[in-house]
């Protein structure tokens, strides 16, 4: 019983860290985007203000059961991803669910939330939501291919499908996987563009044409939960990348530096890019990123 309570405490602490870091990153992104576009931009803590404002709103209307469940579905994915991914390497404080699932499980749990939320968005009846969802799913088929190729390359090269296993490989050899499996890293980073949905791959929630797409009927508490889910998910995904390719992090400061640097790749690429149409985006992912994915697999087969 005590162990269970301890685990729950660990999960809550991890969640709070992820929430704060994710929200801050979101705020910083807004600031950076603004500076690039020669605006002043909001303060970096603006996202916290927004979140607490949304959380304190009363809910007046709803569109039915699935609509009510949508945000909770989304949160399940974010938190589960966070619990499966080891936040700090070689640290036994909060093991969470690190040893309970592997990469394939992670790939699938990562699709749970978006689909659940898509159902919620569907019940609202807003055509923009559904259009956004189909675009999102199409884009997902696009970027999942190089992403999976990169993961498969890692798995076959190091004979393990677990994240902790891959971290151990890096700890033992002393080199990061981004250096020893560079093609896998390139493919994964290119897939990351689609995962984070910054320009040029932001057609899913394109504010100007789809009224933010899937989230368009959600306000107040709904939006608060979705926003926090997004932030937590951002942090979890970045941590996953750091764990897989950059040897994990032994303390929080190193983790923050590494994740922030990684996060800047899609953000900075995004602020200077226009928007792709869905089929252009999908084909982009099936072009160079998939090519690098192939190279990664070939390298893994040779070095196996």
């Amino acid at each position: 019983m005590e162990e269970v309570l301890y685990n729950i405490l660990g999960a809550v602490v991890t969640f709070i860290v992820a929430f704060v870091v994710g929200m801050t990153y979101g705020g910083l992104t807004r600031k950076i985007t603004a500076r690039v576009q020669n605006r002043k931009g909001p303060p970096f803590y603006q996202n916290f203000i927004d979140a607490f404002k949304l959380a304190s709103k009363k809910t007046a209307i709803h569109h039915g059961v699935m609509h009510l469940m949508g945000p909770a579905f989304l949160m399940v994915t974010s938190v589960m991803t966070l619990l499966i991914v080891p936040v700090l390497a070689g640290n036994n404080w909060f093991p969470n669910l690190n040893f309970h699932g592997d990469l394939i499980f992670l790939l699938y749990i990562m699709t749970f939330g978006p689909l659940g939320m898509a159902l919620g968005a569907g019940q609202t009846g807003n055509p923009n939501s559904a259009i956004g969802v189909t675009r999102g799913l199409s884009q997902m088929v696009g970027f999942e291919i190089p992403w999976v190729m990169s993961l498969v390359a890692l798995m076959i090269q190091y004979h393990t499908t677990s994240i902790t296993g891959l971290m151990e490989v890096q700890a033992q050899s002393g080199t990061w996987l981004m250096l020893s499996s560079p093609f896998a890293f390139i493919a994964a980073v290119m897939a990351m563009f689609g995962m984070f949905r910054y320009s040029p791959f932001d057609i899913v929630g394109a504010p100007t044409e789809l009224a933010s797409g899937p989230v368009s009927e959600n306000g107040g508490k709904f939006l608060f939960v979705m926003m926090s889910a997004g932030s937590v998910f951002t942090f979890a995904k970045l941590t996953l990348y750091v764990d897989l390719f950059m040897g994990g992090a032994s303390n929080l400061v190193v983790l923050l530096i590494k994740t922030f640097l990684l996060y800047m790749i899609p953000v900075l690429y995004g602020v200077t890019s226009p928007r792709y149409r869905t089929e252009q985006a999908v084909r982009w992912f099936w072009g160079w990123p998939t090519f690098f994915g192939f190279l990664a697999i070939i390298q893994a087969v040779i070095l196996k």
Partner: peptide
């Protein structure tokens, strides 16, 4: 557990004050 926690967070407080609206009652700009 996660699902129920956040579902309750969204709907618990003031759920009685909310009302169901039809799918025509949506934001279209």
């Amino acid at each position: 557990a996660i699902f129920l926690f956040f579902l309750i967070l969204v709907v618990w407080k003031g759920y009685k004050g909310t009302r169901y609206v039809t799918t025509k009652d949506i934001s279209t700009s």
